[in-house]
Amino acid sequence: MRKICLVLLAVMLSLSIVVTSCDGEKETIKLSELNWGSAQFQSAVAKIIIEEGYGYDVELVPGETIPLFQGLRDGDIDVFLEGWMENQQEAYDAAIAAGDIVNLSFINDDNWQSGFVIPTYVIEGDTARGIDPMLPDLETVDDLKDPECVATFADPEDPSKGLIVNGPVGWECEIVLNEQVVTYGLADYYNVMNAGSSTALFASLKGAYDAGEPWIGYLWGPTWIAGALDLTLVEEPPYDEDVWNEDHGCGWPSVHLFIAAHKDFEDKAADVADMFREWEMSTATLDEVLAYMQDTEGEPIDAAIWFLKNRESIWTEFVPDDIADKVRDAVADM
């Protein structure tokens, strides 16, 4: 018995040596896995392509924007995707200026706007669900001051005012929205409640939406919930850089989603860096994938496999043919 154990142990040891030596040729690449759907999906796609196509091991490092971005600067993370440029402009600029990171690419340029969102049935009603229009005249942020508006969005904890649900605490958008409420003169009419986390924000919106109740709050895209629910943006003055820098008294600029790498990543895996430079995903694609993920209740990795199998025309654009063949073969078995 003991002998068998020893033999087994020896076999296992030698096997593991073989395995490590095989892997030893290429280093492990550490990818960020930011805690929202589109980022998780893209990280999963990247992981499969890099592992199956380029033969590196990939480690996904889950987390929030700020800690992970710090990790990128320190070299604990090799590639950071997808960053939201405008939401972390200061940190981004500082890291670029210090030479800690390099920008590999902007993922797209047709981004969905962030802003004040209401379910469309609040304005138009929903005959199928038997919901009457509540505020048919609501169009712009100025209309929100209307007493009827305020009463409709009443804050249960302070019914004299309305309630606007803000984004996750600590995000740039949360601070901006707080300022916008003041700038638009809504502070006297509305309390702003912090949703605490994106999950809670979605749950709050989804809960109100399913119950057919009025709801107003911050939302951004691409998100699965923006794809899944019929939502309307409350009109704001169009983006103007000067106004924005002054008091955020206008709509959000387009947000640039970027992929950044640590300064030493080029030396570590130039081929992968090249691939990321070509990387492109439209907002429509992301919304489609996110809705698919939500429908199937799948993991990001499942959505990535589905995407690689069914949307080949998109990803073969930024992957060399020989690599693409390997990925295609691998994905076929998944």
Binding site: E64, I66, P67, Q70, V165, P168, V169, G170, W171, M193, N194, A195, G196, S197, T199, A200, A203, S204
Partner: peptide, 21 residues
């Protein structure tokens, strides 16, 4: 934990501090 579903108070400040490093 409750600050993550929007409960104001000290928890939210902790969360804010964490998220902003």
């Amino acid at each position: 934990l409750c600050s993550m579903i929007g409960a104001a108070g000290l928890g939210l400040e902790v969360l804010r501090g964490m998220n902003n490093l």
